[in-house]
Amino acid sequence: MRVTVTVNGTTETHDVEARMLLVQYLREVRGLTGTNIGCDTTSCGACTVLLDGESVKSCTLLAAQADGEEITTIEGMAAPDGTLHPIQEAFHQHHGLQCGFCTPGMVMAVASLLKEHPDPSEAEVREGLEGNLCRCTGYHNIVQAVLSAAHSGELVP
């Protein structure tokens, strides 16, 4: 079937199998491999992207369901000149990543979280990230990064 999807501001049309998942579409058709696949049960959140500004797990959407939608992936976060998005920068500053596999999904989940909770408490950050698993950091520095990003004043919705 034919789908037209805008990803990081670029609109393309492709023929895909009906059973193709959005995450496969992004990785295999659009060549955006920053979005990772960490599980098959909607548990780990590594595949999190923004669909019309809201975090979703792209392993649990069909590419067909994204037809006509706007998707933002990790590749769409930094400025065109390579300057990291304030959330990415906060992860860097606070050592909020180690192996980096969960990181793209984590960053996208944070983007959505901070849109909904611009001034979160630590508890709200932890609850807001309950859909994203990380095996390296123990979450400590991720939480610090999110709190710092929220309070940096640089996040203009």
């Binding site: 959140g45 999190t48 809201e54 975090s55 979703v56 989940a109 959505s112 309950e130 859909g131």
Partner: peptide, 9 residues
Amino acid sequence: VGDPQVRHR
């Protein structure tokens, strides 16, 4: 329900 991503969809 679930987590934020699940609640969005």
